[in-house]
């Protein structure tokens, strides 16, 4: 086991919408399958547990060069990640992320929103973004931009009733995602406008 194996390079974290992935460049050894193991260290481990590291079993001796660390980055503190290569009994040095990663740095995208008018009822459908998310939905009657109303929605797996609309009026809606755990919000989705059913055709 004394052959030299270089540590993985280009170690970085991709984090979008509170889903975090560690990636690295493969270590190339001709004709051989190199495996990798990943460990994390939170602020607690650094400050109170002698700088210990916690292995991620799903990414132990994996051949992939990416590891889903979402489940383990589950506190809003500074984390470090490291990965090493292994070929047979030969192990490389650990390659460690430069600086720290805090999930508050995740990039948040605006929610996918669909607005529907059903008679006099203003309805929205929002794509689920995961358990950490809730949605701030703003809506207003077109022309009355100063009288914006707001609803905060958590349950999103269906068509949600927002409000009832005045006959024939046009209403506009936009939404942003909010993550309470990191106290941040995405930008707003594009505004969508729909028109309520008019009076004359109303069941005469």
């Amino acid at each position: 086991g004394d052959a030299f194996l270089p540590a993985p390079q280009s170690i970085s974290i991709l984090s979008t919408n509170m889903k975090h992935f560690l990636t690295w460049s493969p270590v190339i050894v001709q004709g051989a399958t190199v495996r990798y193991s990943v460990e994390f260290q939170g602020e607690y481990e650094r400050e109170y547990a002698n700088g210990s590291w916690v292995p991620i079993s799903e990414c132990s001796l994996t051949t992939a060069t990416v590891c889903n660390i979402t489940e383990d980055i589950s506190a809003t503190v500074a984390y470090k990640l490291r990965v090493r290569a292994q070929l047979g009994t030969t192990r490389s040095q650990w390659g460690t992320t430069k600086g720290f990663f805090n999930r508050a740095m995740t990039s948040l995208t605006p929610p996918l929103l669909m607005v529907v008018a059903d008679g006099h009822h203003l309805l929205v459908e929002l794509a689920d973004m995961g358990p950490s998310f809730q949605f701030r939905v703003l809506y207003w009657k077109k022309g009355q931009e100063s009288r914006v109303q707001q609803k905060v929605l958590k349950e999103v797996s269906s068509v949600l009733h927002l409000d009832t609309m005045e006959a024939g009026a046009e209403y506009c809606v936009k939404a942003q995602a909010h993550v309470e755990a990191i106290n941040r919000s995405s930008s707003f989705s594009p505004t969508q406008c729909v028109r309520a059913q008019g009076d004359k055709s109303m069941w005469l």
Binding site: G42, Y44, Y48, A49, I56, D72, V77
Partner: peptide, 17 residues
Amino acid sequence: DSFVNRKISSIANSFLS
């Protein structure tokens, strides 16, 4: 148990925060 240790780490770091 690795799974238990990871959950304890998660709780500990949340408590720290």
